[in-house]
Computed example of a mutant assay.
Amino acid sequence: MRKLKYHVACTVDGFIAHKDHTIEGFIPEGDHVTDYLESLKNDYDIVLMGRKTYEFGFQFGVTNPYPWTKQYVLSRTMETSPDPNVELVSENIIDFVRELKTGTGKDIYLCGGAYLATTLLTENLIDEIILKVNPVVFGSGIPLFSEAIKQTDLELIDSKIYKTGVILLTYRVKH
C-alpha cells in the first residue's frame, strides 16, 4: 500500500506562504533543495495538489510541474486542466485518494495546499508529514492546514539540519 506524504516547506511559525501566496523568505538554494528534488524523483510517482498550489506555477509559465510523475489536481472549482499531462479530479476526491493508496508503486506526494491537506488529514489519509522548516517567521499567511483540525499525534521518524538553517522533519501520523 502506498503512503501519502504531505511534503511541504514552511516557516518556523507554520506558514506555507504569505497571504498573497508568495513565498519570499524561503531559502531557494542549498543542499536542502538538492535533497528535495532528489526525493521527488526517487520516492514518488504520483503528485497530488490543490488548485491554488497548481496555479502558483502559472506565474512562471509552468503547467506541467512534475513531468516524471502522474499528476492530479484535486479541485471542485477548476473546470478543465490547462495541460494534458495533469489530470483534474473534481468529484469523489476522498474515494479517489483511497483508491490511489491501494495501488502499487512509489509513495504519493501531497505538495499542497492547505485546504487539501486539511481535508485529507481529517479523513486519516495522510501517512507522513515532511516539513522543510525555513529559518524565517512570516507572522501571518497561509498555514499548513486551512482550518482547525482535530489533535493528531505524530512520531518523529527522521530529521536533518542543513547548513542553510533549514531543518527537515519527518513525522509519521499516528492513526
Rank of each mutant, 00 (worst) to 15 (best):
I130G: 01
G139M: 02
D95K: 11
V133Q: 05
E147Y: 06
Y115A: 15
I108A: 10
R98W: 02
G103Q: 15
L144F: 04
G113H: 11
P143E: 15
T118F: 06
L110D: 14
T164P: 09
G105N: 02
N124K: 15
Q151F: 02
K101G: 10
V97Y: 09
D158K: 11
L144G: 01
L131M: 10
V136H: 00
T164W: 07
I149M: 02
T164A: 12
S159F: 07
N134T: 02
C111Q: 12
E128I: 06
K106E: 09
F96Y: 08
L100K: 14
G103Y: 01
L100P: 03
D107P: 03
V136S: 00
L121V: 14
N134Q: 06
F96I: 01
T118G: 11
K150S: 10
K132P: 00
F145P: 07
G103V: 04
T152G: 06
K160A: 02
A148V: 13
F138S: 09
D153L: 01
T102G: 07
L125F: 04
I94N: 08
I161E: 11
K132G: 01
L121G: 11
I130V: 15
E99Q: 13
Q151G: 13
L125T: 06
E99G: 13
Q151Y: 10
S140Y: 12
A148Y: 08
D127E: 13
Y109K: 11
Y115T: 15
G141Y: 01
V97D: 03
A114V: 05
